[in-house]
Structures are given as C-alpha cells and as structure tokens.
C-alpha cells in the first residue's frame, strides 16, 4: 500500500493531463478529460500553496535556532524572521480587504523593497557578464577561440558604436544569430527533448522511484 498508492496517483493524474492534450470530444463539445485536466492544474496551485507554508517552517527552524542560541549573525536572522511576519501580516491584511491603508502600505513595501532589491540583484549580471567574459574568453584552444570571436562579433554588431567602426558588423551579427546560433539551439533542444521525454516517462510509469526519496 505504502508503495503502490503514490505510483497509482502519479500514473493516473499524469495520464489525464497527457491524454487531455491529445483527444477531444467528437462533437466538438466539452470534453470530460479536458475538464479534469483543468481541474488538476487548479489543484496544483492549491497544493503548492500549502507547500509554501511547509518550506517557511524550514526558514523559521533554521533562523529561529540561530536567534535562540545567539549565534553569530543572529541579528540578521532576527531581521529575516521579522520581515516574514511583517510582510505576511500586511500582505494578508491588504489582500483580504482590510482597507486602503494596508493596500497602499503593501504596495509601497513591495515597490521599495522586494522590487528594487530584485532589480539590483538582476542588474549585477551586467558586472558578472563583464568579469566572466574577461576570465573565460582566452584563446586557449580552438574551441575557446571560436566562442570568443563569435561573442565579440555579435557585441560589435549590437552596440551602435560597432557600426561606426565598420558598417558590416550588424549584418555579420545577424547572420551569426540567425544561422549558427539556431543550429546549436535546435540540436541541443532536440537532444534534451529526447532525454526529458525518457525521464518523464520512467517517472510516469513508476519505473523510476528515486524522486520519492527511495523506498522504505
């Protein structure tokens, strides 16, 4: 029982979702499988919502422990825990209609903390793309050199200043993006699709069980 039921659940819901994308009602009306598949995707949202609570328990345990034992950096952990509580309470108040004060505060907190900190982390990529290029693009061997020249040609073709140097850079860059780039993307995608299919199939059919953490 303990082993079989999870495998049956996986198989049944997986097949419903898959078959709903292949078959349809003969008369063009509403199709029962499509309805169930839609229902199941809603269920995923619900179950995932519960999982957020579970994962948050982990945050509370790890950082609660640090605060309780006054380990180094406990002030940071305390900040983290306080932020969870404050954002959760204000967010819930705002979302469940506690009035415009909470809605506005929630929006301001999002706009001035979560959103700019996220944008700043994302923007760090500009620095890292520069240092990665500096470190990695050395003509160590043929492969590395090919990669380096392709990257430089495309950069010169994209920046307005490239055109000032030589007006053919943009068309070279376009060709590189359209042809060799597409070739690589396509082939890697085909290979990965075959691998992804086999992995999903083994799980769907219960041949692979490791993802459930082994068998007790």
């Amino acid at each position: 029982m303990r082993r079989e039921i999870p495998l049956v659940i996986t198989f049944v819901v997986g097949m419903i979702v898959l078959l709903a994308r292949i078959f349809t009602a003969a008369d063009g009306g509403e199709f029962i499988l499509a309805k169930w598949a839609g229902e199941l995707t809603d269920w995923v949202i619900i179950v995932s919502a519960f999982a957020v609570g579970l994962a948050s328990v982990n945050l509370f345990r790890i950082h609660g422990d640090i605060v309780a034992r006054k380990r180094p950096g406990w002030i940071n952990s305390l900040t983290l825990l306080a932020a969870i509580v404050v954002f959760a309470v204000i967010g819930i108040a705002a979302r469940f209609g506690a009035g415009p004060f909470f809605s506005e505060l929630n929006q301001n907190l999002y706009d001035s903390i979560i959103s700019p900190l996220g944008a700043a982390m994302f923007a760090i990529l500009a620095f890292y793309i520069a240092s990665a290029a500096y470190r990695a693009f050395r003509m160590r061997n043929l492969e590395a050199s090919v990669m380096l020249f392709a990257a430089i040609l495309v950069m010169l073709g994209r920046a307005p200043v490239g055109e000032l140097i030589w007006n053919q850079f943009p068309s070279i860059a376009n060709w590189l993006v359209d042809i060799p780039n597409t070739v690589g993307q396509r082939a890697i995608m085909i290979g990965a699709a075959i691998g992804g299919f086999a992995t999903s199939l083994r799980i769907l059919l219960g041949i692979e069980r490791g993802h459930l953490g082994g068998v007790e």
């Binding site: 290029a133 500096y134 050395r138 010169l156 307005p160 200043v161």
Partner: peptide, 24 residues
C-alpha cells in the same frame, strides 16, 4: 542610454583583448 550601451560594450571587448594579450 544607447551611448552607455556603446561604452559598456567597448569596455567589455577591451578587457577581453587585454586579457588575451596578457595570456599570450
């Protein structure tokens, strides 16, 4: 902002070139 883009690209390319000269 496109001017900033141009200079940004040039800086990155310049660094790649400097890195390779040093390497060789």
């Amino acid at each position: 902002k496109m001017d900033a883009q141009s200079l940004g690209h040039l800086i990155i390319i310049a660094f790649i070139i400097v890195g390779n000269i040093a390497f060789f």
